[in-house]
Simulated scan of single mutants.
Amino acid sequence: MMNLNAFQNDIAQAVAFALQEDVGSGDITAMLIPAERQSKARVISRDRAIIAGKAWVNEVFRQVDPSVQVIWKVSEGEWVRPGQELFELVGPARALLTGERCALNFLQTLSGTATRCRFYADKVASTQVQLLDTRKTIPGLRIAQKYAVSVGGCYNHRVGLYDAFLIKENHIMACGGIAEAIAEAHRIAPGKAVEVEVETMAQLDEAIAADADIIMLDNFTPEEMVVAVQHTRSKTANRAKGPIKLEASGNITDKTLLPYAQTGVDYISIGALTKDCKAVDLSMRVSM
């Protein structure tokens, strides 16, 4: 599971933006309730789901009113059933109602992401492949969704454009070729892993010769991928850094996932892990 200690500022900023978007100059409906009124609330799930996002919920109520107590009844990464209580809130009624939607939006989205990832991860549990997310995330929720991916049992690809090279077709054309692009990447950031996308066996050989660290096999069929895996393993078996890692990508669905995983590739990247997630249905019940 991704360690959130390094991302506390990101969590705080995401929550602050979400609250500004929702609350703006003030929750005028909550002002109908006397400021001194104390209350309790229970949040339940209406779906079977993997829970992810507790840190974002905690941060919502910390920013709304630090006196609100968030009492969790479930653990991060836990399966929950319909009707199960997730957490209890105790504090000023106004604060509970003001923070409700923002907190549930984070929790339902991240839990939905984690649940979808667990669905995919379970399909390849019999293999050694690692399922990777992509940059196809909800704007502003990159770290949050990638965290949820890890809660669901899948893995993170690069976080953004700044932390890893992924040389694709347009980069190759602009640089003048695969070898030129890889050489320039090594020059710009020595020691940083360089991944390159290929679409043919000829390009695969170019990438191997240029000493790529990871090669993405784009839109290969499972049958073509088996050949590519065997070919790459045989050509890089004596490589000082070890065999080049291979990643499968391109139109891989839950129906075709297992055949691709069984080809022997190291990774499979799937945009659907984050871009097609269905939010978990949650409900908050307040007792004044």
Rank of each mutant, 00 (worst) to 15 (best):
E195D: 06
V229S: 10
E223F: 12
A228E: 15
T221H: 08
A183I: 04
S249P: 12
V265K: 12
I244D: 05
T253S: 15
A210G: 14
N238V: 09
N238Y: 15
A183Y: 05
Q203N: 04
E184K: 11
T256G: 05
G264W: 09
V198R: 08
A237R: 15
E199D: 09
A240L: 13
I244P: 13
A183T: 13
A261T: 09
F220N: 07
K192L: 13
V196W: 00
A181G: 03
I252F: 10
P190W: 03
M201H: 02
K235I: 13
K192S: 12
K245S: 12
G191W: 02
V265T: 11
T253K: 08
V194N: 02
S249H: 10
T200E: 01
V227Q: 15
E184T: 07
D205V: 03
E195V: 07
G264L: 01
G250E: 11
V198C: 06
I244K: 06
R187W: 01
V227Y: 10
T236A: 09
I182V: 14
K241T: 15
L204A: 01
D211S: 14
M201W: 00
A237E: 15
M216I: 01
I244A: 02
A193F: 06
A183P: 00
E206N: 03
N238H: 14
S249I: 01
I188H: 10
V227E: 15
G191D: 03
G264K: 01
E223N: 11
T253Q: 08
A212L: 08
H231D: 14
A207S: 12
I182A: 03
N251E: 08
I208D: 08
T263S: 07
A261H: 04
A240Y: 13
A207P: 07
P222K: 05
I214H: 01
D211N: 15
A237D: 11
I252G: 07
T253W: 07
D205G: 00
P259Q: 10
V194M: 03
L217S: 05
H231P: 15
I244G: 06
A209R: 13
T236M: 08
A240K: 15
A202S: 06
V226E: 15
V196N: 03
E197S: 04
M225Y: 09
A193K: 12
D211P: 13
N238C: 07
Y260H: 11
K235C: 12
N238R: 13
G242M: 14
K235Q: 15
S234H: 13
A248T: 10
N251V: 00
T256C: 02
P222W: 01
M225W: 08
A183D: 05
T263C: 04
D205N: 11
E199Y: 00
N238I: 05
A210F: 11
K192V: 14
R239V: 11
I182F: 07
T200K: 02
G242H: 11
M216D: 00
A189H: 15
A237H: 09
V226R: 15
E223S: 12
D205P: 00
I208H: 06
A248Q: 05
R239F: 14
V265Q: 07
N219A: 00
D254N: 12
K192W: 07
M201G: 00
D218P: 13
E180K: 08
G242N: 10
K245N: 04
I214V: 14
T263W: 06
L257E: 07
L258W: 07
A185K: 06
I215G: 06
I188N: 06
N251R: 12
K255S: 08
L217E: 05
E224P: 04
L246A: 08
A212D: 09
T263E: 05
